[in-house]
Amino acid sequence: MARTLSAPVTVAFDYTRSTGPVVGRFLTGLRDGVVVAGRTSDGRVVVPPPEFDPITHEALTDFVEVAATGTVSSWTWVPEPVKGQPLDHPFAFALVTLDGADTPFLHALHVTSPDEVSTGMRVQVRWRGERTGAVTDIEAFVPLADEDSASPAGGGLLEDHLVTGVVTPVELDYLYAASPEESAFYRGLAEGKILGQRCPACHKVYVPPRSACPVDGVATTEEVELSEVGTITTFCIVNVPFLGQKIKPPYVSAYVLLDGADIAILHLILDIPADEVRMGMRVKAVWKPREEWGTTIENISHFSPTGDPDADYDTYKQHL
């Protein structure tokens, strides 16, 4: 058995970026098939244009168009492309100094072998068919066989339709692991048990157990099986829907102090109208059918009122 439990997590969002005038100008150019550079106060023509001048720190306002052809000033081979890169087969990343520019620009170079690349080689932009105003409007650079075959420059910027925003999808895949203490807790749940652990220093029972008791800075150790009955210390009624939400609102999210534990767990309260949930209410775990169990606290579908009298405020007030 692995020491810890793990599961994949994907963190994904399509970020909506406002570009400001300088980046917007550059992306507008790409949309319209033109590479826009900025002239900085030292006279250099820079691609992409920096938002602020590196010397005067003023917002950049001097734009010039440069060619879609250029020279490779450095390159590196990408033997194993990662998700999202411009090409899904081995390719080169290159720094390309476009004709008319003084500094190179980073993008992919579409070749099939490192033998086809060299510093100093001539390349040109391969434009995407449908362009939206993003750096990916350039699919990649491609080798320029002879200068006469260079694709003609674009038709100029549509000044009254400047790009002001760009959507950037960011999707990252992680393998999330639980700590060994948490793993013991989740494995207990897979057997229908709620397992806490006691801190060897302060003797408080933590559920889930912790790699460090937050009071003493030492791992909790001695296992304690907890009751599935407990007291609602405090709660909130969630009425607001939001992106990524797993439970349909309205629902009651409550801190439940299980009998025998010194810290409350956060869970869902059902089987009672939300506006009748009370602090001090006694509740009991309602388990999902056993065949649906996994190593997760979601084995407990929710907590449900026991019908017993409410706990006295003094019995849980120190847990608020």
Binding site: Y15, R17, T19, V23, F26, L27, P48, V78, V82, K83, G84, Q85, P86, F93, L106, H107, A108, A134, V135, T136, V166, T168, V170
Partner: peptide, 10 residues
């Protein structure tokens, strides 16, 4: 994030 990250240069 505007002209580099969308290319995912590793």
């Amino acid at each position: 994030p505007y002209t580099m990250t969308p290319l995912w240069p590793d």
